[in-house]
Structure formats: C-alpha cells, structure tokens
Design a protein around this nucleic acid. Structure first.
Lengths: 154, 154
DNA sequence: ATTATGTCTACTAATATGGTAGACTATTCA
DNA sequence: TGAATAGTCTACCATATTAGTAGACATAAT
C-alpha cells in the first residue's frame, strides 16, 4: 500500500471535519485554507469521499461539507482504500489469496505479502479519525490513549 | 510501500538463484525462461541487484549470475527497498520521524504511518530468500518452519 | 576469430499523479 | 426576483512512473 499526496490531503480534510463535527457545513475553501491544500484539487477529493459515503455536502450559499458519521466510526483503512486502493503491497487481499492457492512455486512469497497486508489492515482498521484528530498534547505520558500505538505494542 | 511488477520479478529471479546457490553462474535467459519473465527487462533488474550487492555476475561465454551471499542472509526488506523504495506508506522512516517531530497538528496521523512502516519492516527484515525459496510442500502441518508466519502470529 | 554472454544507453507506450479551468446547478438572502 | 455564494461536473494539462524494447558494445571461452 502507498499513501499518495491525494490520500494525505483526504485525511487532512477529514481531520478538520472531525474537529468540527456537529458544527454544520464547512466550506471547501475553509478546509483548504486551514490545511493549506489546493482548493480545486480538494473539491475532487471531497466528491470522492462523498461518493464513498464518508462525508455529506450542502449545496448553495451557506453550503459545505460535514462528516456523515461520528469521527470514531470512520477508520483510516476506509479512507486509504477509497483514495489509494488496496492495503496489500501487491494486488489486493483477494488477489493474493488466489495466488497463494494457485501458484505453488511462489506460495510462500505471496504469503509474506499477505502477512504485510494483514499487519497494515490491523492497524488501519482500528484507528479512527477520533484517534488522530484534534491538535492534542505532546507524547509525554499516557494522558490520552493512542489506539494505533496500543495495537502496535501489544 | 508498494511492490511493483518489477519488484516481483526481482524476487522471483532471486528465488531461482537461491534455489541454485553454489551451482555456478545462471544465465539471464535461463532465469527468464524458468519464471517466464521478459528477458531484456530482467537484465536491467539484475544490474540493479548487482549494484546493490545482492548478486554477482560473470561476463562472457559461460557467464551468468549468482547470489553474492547465502540465501538466509538476503532479506526481502533489502530487495524491496532496492527496487521499490522505502517500506513506509508515505515518505520514508526518517522523513516520517521528521514530520512527527515538527508537525504538531498531524503528529498522530504520521505516527500511524510510522506504525504501519514498522510492522512491514518487522516482517520483511526477518524473512530471507531461504524462507521463501524452494518449491516446497503445501501448508498442512508445521513440517517446515515459516518465518513470516511465526512473526505475524507471535 | 567466432560465439556466447553480460553492460550500457537510448527509446517508447501506457498509465498514474497532481493538479487547473470553466461552465453549470442549487440555495440563501436582500 | 435576482445577486451572491457554494458545491458539481467535464474537460484539460504537465510531469513522473511503470513496464518494457532495441541495439551497439565489452568481455570471456573455445
């Protein structure tokens, strides 16, 4: 899996919307300004996120975007799969399984790829916007939980 | 991290060389034939692997390629980094650390990327050509150890 | 010398990435 | 009702990456 610039922009935009959850529609322009993203490009990204049912839009004056679900119900895996494709380092989960089952000579190689995919999925499917949004405190002690770290360390 | 077609070819070629370790130089043509890879493309890939000191070449008639180190001392991480770049899903390890240290607002996002990178690195830095080469038995019981699975399951 | 092989440089076609431009549509508010 | 405001949609565009191919050249074996 590779996260593109576009994927990063999507995550940044969603973090802004998460920080203002239940505060009404936020304009594309405001998101772009706050995160310093190219406005027209962000338009396309938000459209994609809308089609993927992560955000909703309000048209016309006083319009804008807001999250369709609470921040703790939107996971990084969903965002990355939507804008950057499968989490697997090669093909996708189903494709890898196919290869593992059919290609005896390379079974073990593809199994390693699958292991990598599973490790990434495990982290990203358990980290939500709520876990990363909000410009909160430095690392120091465990004042606030950090989901992905917890998993990585278990 | 994304493994390209080229990265897969590199791994396939190295698996062939691992299977014939200490059997002298193997011709590009033979590797290409055995794994059904485009011969001219494979040339370039092997050159790259030679520059990265994973293989050595013998020129002229009776020439070919062989591994420079035993199969259990060439890890998938090294191969993938050589042909497909950093294991991190965004930027590379050092770049991510920089971002974590400097960009307060997105620290937690970049930390998740770092976690994903570390998970991938953990698997790939502990799986060698010896672990995946050889067209050996089906999964069934644990007749033979499988390094990457062991790690993924610990 | 001839043949077999790796080396090197240059090209290419197709696709992905990271955008920009502008017309169009829907909504608010005076 | 008609500006003004904001999202929607289609079409471009430049550049980089991917996945190769072609061919001349260098080196070694026989």
């Amino acid at each position: 899996m590779k996260v593109s610039q576009k994927g990063l922009y999507a995550l940044q935009a969603l973090m802004v919307l998460a920080g203002r959850y239940r505060q009404g529609a936020i304009r594309i322009r405001d998101i772009a300004y706050e995160e310093n993203l190219p406005e027209k490009f962000l338009e396309l990204i938000l459209l994609e996120l809308k089609n993927a049912r992560m955000v909703e839009s309000v048209r016309g004056a006083k319009g804008g975007y807001h999250l369709k679900r609470p921040p703790n119900q939107i996971f990084l895996s969903e965002v990355i799969r939507t804008v950057d494709g499968p989490l697997a380092p090669f093909a996708d989960g189903a494709g890898l399984q196919e290869l593992i089952d059919s290609d005896k000579a390379h079974r073990r190689l593809y199994s390693v790829f699958m292991d990598v995919r599973n490790a990434a999925a495990h982290i990203l499917e358990n980290t939500s916007l709520a876990d990363i949004a909000g410009d909160v405190s430095p690392p120091e002690a465990n004042k606030k939980k950090h989901r992905s770290r917890q998993i990585a360390e278990h």
